[in-house]
């Protein structure tokens, strides 16, 4: 009962034009995060998208593990010529990350998915 059911739904990765939209929700196990990293990387490589938007508005905590995964997704995507935008971080999560010492300097951020899309379509960095 205290073990979450196995075979959790995978994190949905949606292709919108030449942008991949990944929407993280709720509790993310370490294993799932690593799986996601792998999924996104292979999707970027095979589909040739130019942008990745990771929506974390549904995520209640980001610890150093998930932080590292997110940063690695962005660096890997960059090597594959796609830009990554992290969208929708909650205030409490942002405060905690800063306190934790994790400022994710390499990541481009946006207030929400709309803004992230806007940022990618403008092409500026």
């Amino acid at each position: 009962m205290n073990q979450p059911t196995p075979g959790q739904p995978a994190v949905p990765v949606l292709a919108l034009g030449d942008v991949l939209l990944v929407s993280l929700q709720g509790e993310l196990h370490d294993g799932m995060a690593e799986q996601l990293q792998h999924d996104i990387t292979s999707r970027v490589a095979t589909s040739g998208v130019t942008g990745v938007v990771i929506d974390i508005s549904g995520v209640e905590i980001v610890d150093s593990f998930l932080g590292r995964v997110l940063a690695e997704i962005a660096s890997t995507a960059r090597l594959l010529a796609a830009r990554t935008v992290l969208a929708g971080m909650r205030p409490a999560v942002a405060i905690t990350l800063v306190e934790l010492g994790l400022t994710l300097p390499g990541l481009v951020t946006a207030l929400d998915v709309d803004r992230a899309m806007e940022l990618l379509s403008r092409g500026g960095s």
């Binding site: 370490d30 209640e60 905590i61 205030p91 409490a92 999560v93 905690t96 306190e99």
Partner: peptide
């Protein structure tokens, strides 16, 4: 409060890992 909860859960996550 929400911010403190988030900090506590994050700390717990780090330490449990």
């Amino acid at each position: 409060g929400l911010v403190q909860q988030t900090k506590l859960v994050t700390a717990a996550s780090e330490l449990a890992r």
